[in-house]
Structures are given as structure tokens and as C-alpha cells.
Amino acid sequence: MGKSNSKLKPEVVEELTRKTYFTEKEVQQWYKGFIKDCPSGQLDAAGFQKIYKQFFPFGDPTKFATFVFNVFDENKDGRIEFSEFIQALSVTSRGTLDEKLRWAFKLYDLDNDGYITRNEMLDIVDAIYQMVGNTVELPEEENTPEKRVDRIFAMMDKNADGKLTLQEFQEGSKADPSIVQALSLYDGLV
């Protein structure tokens, strides 16, 4: 993909415009910024974590950033290329609610087996709590990752089998306004 070129080839721009919710001009602008920050044309896990640390200076986002990195890194080569970056950004910032929920499901399904187990969710929720640090005051019933996961599973795990399917996750998330709101945070920002 033209590693350190400051412009993408027209056919690449066209393809990314088809695969995302961005215009050709927006794709070019994002590429310019991506190459400025990642001259090699790729972003590794350490660089990704560094970006998260800028956004969450009062907590430790390392663990959460690693989980997000793994979802962005579609081809699992340990690096995020621009096409992976822009497609994930498109879903998280401008995707439909169902697209965002499928993306979030992939984030929580750490072993990619098609289910979110209690332990997988606990890993992610714990990482989120570490990331936000003491900057967020949580209600008593959610002031630990374990309590939050218990509440989520009580609401979403309809067949009580200890794991969530994509359908259970989507339906449960849509029924909880706070989850829908959290997924909409990026709307309109890009």
C-alpha cells in the first residue's frame, strides 16, 4: 500500500471509500495523518498503546488498548495497516448500531470462538476500569469489574449457560440505554 507515500493510489482510495462510511477526501485526510504518525505505514501494539495513554492519562489503558489493537489487526500480523485502521474507525465512528455491536462482540470474544464467556467479559471490564482509573464515580452495584459483569450476565445471558452469543449480546445491549450510549460516543466526531 505504498508504505511511506503521502498519497494513496486512486484505486485504493476508491476501494476504501466503498468499504467504509468515509468520502474519498476523508480517506485521504486520514491517510495523511496516519502516515505522519506512522511513517512506516504500520502501527504496532506499543504505538497503539501510546495513543491510548494520551487519551487516558489518569488510568492505565495498556490492557484495553491491547484488546482493541487485536480487533483492529484483522489479518493478525501484529501490525495495523491503514486499510485495517480506516475500516475499524469507520465501523466504530459511523457504523450502524448492529455493526458497532458486532465489532464490540469481537472485542469481548477474546478467543474468537463465537461466545463471550464470563471470564472474557471480566478481562475486558477489568481493563476498562484500569483505563479510566479513579476518574469515573461508579454506583455501588457496579464499583468492581466483578459486580459489573454479574449485572451484565444477569441481564443478557437469557439461557443461563454462562456465555453470551452474538444475538444475546446484541439484544441485551439494545435493551440497556447506557450500552447504546457508550457505543454512540464516537458518532459525529469524525
Score class of each variant (00 low, 15 high):
141 E>P: 00
88 A>V: 14
38 C>G: 09
60 D>S: 01
160 A>R: 02
95 G>A: 08
118 R>Q: 00
15 E>Y: 13
100 K>N: 11
174 K>T: 13
165 T>P: 02
23 T>N: 06
174 K>N: 13
61 P>K: 11
41 G>L: 00
30 W>D: 05
47 G>E: 07
25 K>F: 13
76 K>L: 07
120 E>A: 01
57 P>M: 08
114 G>M: 00
91 V>H: 04
131 M>E: 14
166 L>I: 09
176 D>A: 05
150 D>A: 04
11 E>S: 15
136 V>T: 13
45 A>D: 07
132 V>R: 00
92 T>F: 07
108 Y>I: 07
162 G>M: 03
184 S>Q: 05
108 Y>D: 15
160 A>N: 06
130 Q>S: 15
161 D>E: 11
28 Q>S: 09
24 E>R: 06
116 I>H: 09
98 D>S: 00
31 Y>H: 14
63 K>M: 07
41 G>Q: 14
24 E>P: 14
135 T>C: 03
16 L>E: 02
96 T>Y: 04
160 A>G: 05
54 Q>H: 06
82 F>M: 06
58 F>S: 01
133 G>L: 04
49 Q>A: 10
107 L>F: 11
18 R>A: 01
63 K>R: 09
86 I>K: 00
89 L>V: 04
184 S>Y: 05
97 L>P: 11
85 F>Y: 04
101 L>N: 05
137 E>P: 04
53 K>L: 05
57 P>E: 00
159 N>T: 05
64 F>C: 10
108 Y>M: 11
116 I>F: 06
186 Y>F: 11
43 L>P: 12
138 L>E: 04
61 P>E: 04
139 P>E: 13
73 D>T: 05
108 Y>L: 02
142 E>R: 01
4 S>W: 00
36 K>I: 14
157 D>V: 12
144 T>R: 01
79 R>Q: 15
141 E>G: 13
52 Y>Q: 06
72 F>V: 05
54 Q>V: 00
95 G>M: 02
94 R>Q: 12
154 A>I: 00
78 G>Y: 12
185 L>F: 11
119 N>Q: 08
17 T>M: 11
148 R>C: 05
84 E>L: 10
13 V>M: 11
160 A>S: 09
97 L>W: 05
101 L>D: 15
54 Q>N: 13
190 V>M: 11
163 K>R: 13
54 Q>Y: 04
137 E>H: 06
138 L>S: 12
107 L>C: 04
164 L>M: 08
67 F>R: 13
95 G>F: 02
145 P>M: 03
85 F>C: 09
26 E>F: 02
58 F>M: 14
150 D>I: 11
59 G>I: 08
61 P>T: 03
25 K>P: 09
110 L>M: 10
156 M>R: 07
164 L>R: 06
113 D>P: 02
189 L>V: 04
65 A>G: 10
161 D>K: 02
136 V>P: 08
78 G>P: 13
154 A>V: 09
81 E>V: 05
143 N>S: 12
162 G>L: 06
32 K>W: 14
7 K>S: 02
149 V>Y: 02
56 F>V: 04
147 K>D: 08
180 V>E: 15
57 P>H: 00
76 K>R: 08
39 P>L: 11
118 R>G: 09
76 K>S: 01
186 Y>A: 05
54 Q>A: 13
178 S>R: 11
88 A>P: 13
135 T>V: 00
178 S>H: 10
113 D>G: 07
112 N>C: 07
114 G>T: 01
78 G>E: 08
152 I>F: 08
146 E>M: 07
121 M>K: 02
69 F>K: 14
90 S>I: 03
36 K>W: 12
147 K>E: 12
59 G>H: 11
49 Q>I: 00
36 K>C: 09
101 L>S: 03
117 T>M: 08
108 Y>W: 00
171 E>I: 09
110 L>H: 13
41 G>M: 02
28 Q>H: 06
103 W>E: 01
34 F>D: 09
60 D>Y: 10
142 E>L: 05
68 V>S: 03
164 L>Q: 05
134 N>Y: 04
182 A>L: 01
79 R>A: 09
6 S>D: 13
30 W>N: 01
20 T>G: 01
77 D>L: 13
103 W>V: 07
188 G>T: 07
163 K>E: 11
84 E>P: 04
111 D>Y: 07
98 D>F: 07
127 A>T: 06
146 E>L: 07
3 K>F: 05
123 D>I: 15
84 E>Q: 10
46 A>I: 12
52 Y>R: 00
121 M>P: 03
104 A>L: 01
87 Q>D: 11
162 G>Y: 15
74 E>N: 02
11 E>L: 01
14 E>D: 07
72 F>P: 14
106 K>R: 10
166 L>R: 08
78 G>N: 15
84 E>M: 05
39 P>S: 09
66 T>C: 00
136 V>Y: 05
86 I>M: 01
140 E>W: 13
142 E>Y: 06
110 L>F: 12
118 R>T: 05
49 Q>P: 08
147 K>S: 09
71 V>G: 04
43 L>R: 12
128 I>K: 04
107 L>H: 02
101 L>C: 00
18 R>Y: 04
137 E>I: 04
123 D>V: 05
52 Y>T: 01
28 Q>F: 12
106 K>M: 08
172 G>W: 12
13 V>T: 15
83 S>Q: 01
139 P>Y: 02
185 L>V: 04
165 T>I: 07
62 T>W: 04
84 E>K: 15
29 Q>I: 02
25 K>R: 11
163 K>L: 01
184 S>V: 02
150 D>E: 06
18 R>G: 14
30 W>K: 00
173 S>F: 10
146 E>T: 00
154 A>G: 05
55 F>P: 04
147 K>R: 10
119 N>W: 04
177 P>M: 10
188 G>K: 11
120 E>K: 10
84 E>D: 07
14 E>M: 07
19 K>Q: 02
105 F>G: 02
43 L>Y: 09
181 Q>R: 12
121 M>I: 07
161 D>V: 13
125 V>Q: 06
132 V>K: 05
162 G>A: 09
128 I>P: 15
92 T>W: 09
144 T>D: 07
57 P>K: 04
82 F>H: 15
161 D>L: 14
97 L>T: 04
23 T>I: 13
114 G>L: 06
138 L>H: 12
49 Q>R: 14
41 G>Y: 13
59 G>Y: 10
125 V>H: 06
168 E>D: 12
67 F>L: 13
113 D>K: 02
164 L>A: 14
153 F>N: 02
169 F>D: 11
131 M>N: 10
39 P>Y: 02
144 T>E: 03
129 Y>R: 00
76 K>G: 01
168 E>V: 12
63 K>N: 08
148 R>G: 07
14 E>H: 11
21 Y>M: 00
10 P>N: 02
25 K>E: 10
134 N>H: 04
166 L>Q: 06
32 K>S: 09
